[in-house]
Design a protein around this nucleic acid. Structure first.
Lengths: 261, 261
DNA sequence: CGCCAACTTGATGGCTGTCAAGTCAGGTGG
DNA sequence: CCACCTGACTTGACAGCCATCAAGTTGGCG
């Protein structure tokens, strides 16, 4: 989280769909023409790296869009691995499961993020992926990916980057949980969200949390009450304002100094 | 750690070199002929997957063996990435570093293990790799690897497995730190070591720790005093015997039940 | 022999988990 | 339209686990 800086060179603005008003569970993104050429995520999505600049390959990668309602799974632990997913709209959490029933949030993903690469290991997923919002995901079939990367060293390197991002993401989480206090973990989490929103052309200081206190706590190795208390404390210290899911960071440097100290 | 089970199908026994009696810092492994064909790790090492069964490629992958003295670095964070390493003898720890000076052990590696793949992400390593023992490592140049995997889909899949192992390893560490007590973390650590020794044809119940209490604590998000106390407690409970670095697990099921409970 | 790193063990305090009560918003059904 | 219910959240009281500080032991090495 502190050491990573992905995709900051290709900042693209995109609309952030709100939680759907009960209904058919379909997100607000226009269906549009098939393929990636017209996608508003072009430049952020990994397919940009795979096909650019040979436009021939555009739209051939993504065979299936899937609309997923809030709470539904895109895949579950043990499901056979067939695709990598790019989030087009909505938010997703991944859950790590242990045999004894233990579970923990292992990541939150926002539009433009890739998830599901954990499954390449043994042909089956090592996580659950659950939609937090009604979400829209692009499935990139593994065999297509393999095929492309066999023919194209640059594509292969992009694939490696996806892997390494996941390695670094989890490694950072290790350090956060292993060495930081509750306040520091929470500040790190907020700054990570801030950076990622900012990289997408959205406000770095004001945003909506799409996940519950419980889910945040799970990611950080804290209980939901502790997360709530830290939020309250940060507010009374004048570093942020929080009301339900709505966050406004008053002082990013202030949060940073909490961590470094 | 609980969900992973690597290389258990290809168990190969090999000698475990002890800490060298002060000297030139060269491990006891016989120099032998160049190449992988005569290596005692054949079957465990990832090169087995890359070349088998076409023996032609044997020995072409590994260009450099490096002997590393205890405490020395094989690579450091930020070093440009050029190779993946297979540990031939000795033990290695990897360290995750944050900009603010924070550091944490992110893994321990034993003979046959691969490390260094984190560097593929951005062309530079995201860890320090430090030898705990005098160690002997095989460097596998990245361009060779890339070349091989472009020509050979099976090799490419092996490469993906290496990545995913690192993802899963860190994810498991997250869950351990996020949900387990000090006793449970320590028991998990011991069982993980036990399983890995066992997969190499060594005793699952009796082995030497190559790392300090401080290093174990760092991996688990605990202080060294806590690790020491847990060891003492497990001993007084009759689950293990420990004297310095020497460990004898009396009851593997007993340790397991501590975690599940 | 002496030094130092690694380790053990004790005493104490603080952070965070646990338990509990209460508020609030949203959704459902009468 | 309102009552009710449920899930999410906040806040308080308290306890327990683990970090911290400290002192002493051991073993390896110069």
């Amino acid at each position: 989280m502190l050491t990573t800086n992905f995709v900051t060179s290709t900042v693209v603005a995109f609309g952030l769909p709100g939680r759907q008003i009960q209904g058919d569970g379909v997100t607000a993104s226009a269906p549009g023409p098939r393929g990636c050429a017209s996608c508003h995520l072009r430049g952020i999505c990994l397919t940009s790296e795979f096909v650019s600049p040979s436009h021939a390959a555009f739209g051939e990668l993504v065979l299936a869009h899937r609309r997923v309602k809030a709470g539904q799974a895109i895949y579950r632990t043990g499901d056979s691995f067939s695709s990598v997913y790019v989030l087009k709209a909505g938010f997703v959490k991944t859950l790590a499961l242990f045999e004894d029933g233990r579970e923990q949030v292992s990541g939150f993903y926002m539009p433009g993020d890739t998830f599901g690469v954990d499954g390449m290991a043994f042909g089956q997923h090592a996580n659950d992926a659950i939609a937090l919002d009604d979400a829209d995901v692009c499935a990139i079939p593994y065999d297509k990916l393999e095929q492309l990367s066999l023919a194209n060293p640059a594509a292969q390197r992009s694939l490696y980057r996806m892997f390494s991002q996941e390695i670094v993401r989890r490694q950072d989480a290790m350090v956060v949980m292993g060495t930081m206090s509750a306040t520091q973990r929470t500040a790190t989490f907020l700054l990570d969200l801030s950076r990622r929103f900012s990289a997408r052309g959205l406000s770095a200081s004001e945003f909506l949390l799409r996940m519950t206190r419980d889910e945040i706590g799970s990611l950080l190795g804290l209980k939901l009450e502790t997360v709530s208390r830290v939020f309250s404390k940060l507010q009374s210290d004048g570093l942020m304002e929080i009301e339900g899911k709505h966050v406004r960071i008053v002082s990013i440097p202030g949060l940073r100094s909490l961590i470094t100290h």
